[in-house]
């Protein structure tokens, strides 16, 4: 069967191997050979005989040439023409990335606006429950001053310029960062931005805060009122989401090829 030309051909290109009992008999022999160790020597003897017998059958199948039988064509039915398919309703979706996002500027503005709304709610809480607008501000500053946990309520409710500066800094930074996160996350829920702003984000942020508050800010943990806290998160989400989703989207370069991104090729998108 093997000529120098055929040697390079894929095995079984024109024939398939012939069935043989050799492997079955040989495998039975191996199993019995070992089974003899735990049963009795007779089994091993039977196994050895079967192994040799099966081996000889097997050897004669492959030597000097492999025994094969011809392929019986099944009437050209084997390789199909494709089944009728419903027309594809969209261009093929090999890659799906948000091709338009809100500009980061929107996140900056939205974050600050949301932060302001949040501050209003927090101040209201201070006034209504503790009679001081300074309390929530001082508590926020407690994130950098662990000693604050030991202070009493009168001290915490008093005005202190330094603490206000720190609190405003923390609050602005966190608000801007969250606003930027919003710009990235909102395009993934293109149809209902407010759902994300009012429900999803507040739930995620509140539960994050709830689980870490004791470590991050023990002072606040002591005073915090969770309903008000969640309310302030919702205020943030609603305002921030509303601001961001109003800003016009800009296209990303994600849909462009590498050469287009490098400016080697010009394309419509982004110009």
């Amino acid at each position: 069967m093997a000529t120098p030309d055929d040697a390079r051909e894929t095995p079984y290109a024109r024939a398939i191997p012939r069935p043989t009992a050799g492997p079955l008999v040989a495998a039975f022999g191996v199993a019995m050979l070992f089974a003899g160790i735990v049963t009795n020597v007779g089994a091993s003897v039977v196994g050895a005989v079967a192994l040799v017998f099966g081996g000889v059958i097997w050897f004669r199948e492959v030597m000097p040439d492999e025994a094969v039988e011809p392929i019986e064509a099944t009437g050209g039915q084997t390789v199909v023409t494709p089944p009728p398919l419903p027309a594809r309703d969209a261009p093929s979706r090999r890659l799906l990335l948000p091709v338009e996002i809100h500009p980061y500027r929107a996140g900056l503005v939205g974050g600050l606006a949301g932060g302001a709304a949040m501050a209003v709610v927090a101040a209201a809480w201070g006034l209504v429950e503790h009679g001081s607008v300074w309390l929530p501000i001082n508590l926020l500053a407690g994130a950098v001053n662990p000693g604050m946990a030991a202070m009493g309520e009168p001290e915490l409710a008093a005005f202190d310029g330094g603490w206000i500066a720190i609190a405003v800094g923390i609050h602005a930074a966190l608000s801007i960062m969250t606003g930027l996160l919003f710009t990235v996350a909102l395009p993934m829920m293109p149809r209902r931005p407010m759902l994300f702003g009012v429900v999803v984000a507040p739930v995620i942020l509140s539960s994050l805060s709830w689980s870490t508050m004791g470590i991050v800010n023990p002072a606040m943990e002591e005073f915090i009122s969770w309903p008000w806290f969640v309310g302030s998160q919702i205020a943030f989400g609603a305002v921030c989401g509303a601001v961001i989703s109003r800003v016009e989207k800009v296209p990303t370069m994600a849909a462009l090829s590498t050469s287009e991104r490098l400016g080697i090729e010009q394309s419509e998108v982004g110009s």
Partner: peptide, 23 residues
């Protein structure tokens, strides 16, 4: 492909597994 590279070894492997399990 039309079959595995070593069809008889393939059968041998299956029967060894089965007899091993039965043992």
């Amino acid at each position: 492909a039309r079959d595995m590279a070593f069809p008889r070894l393939n059968a041998f492997g299956f029967w060894l597994f089965l007899f091993g399990g039965l043992l």
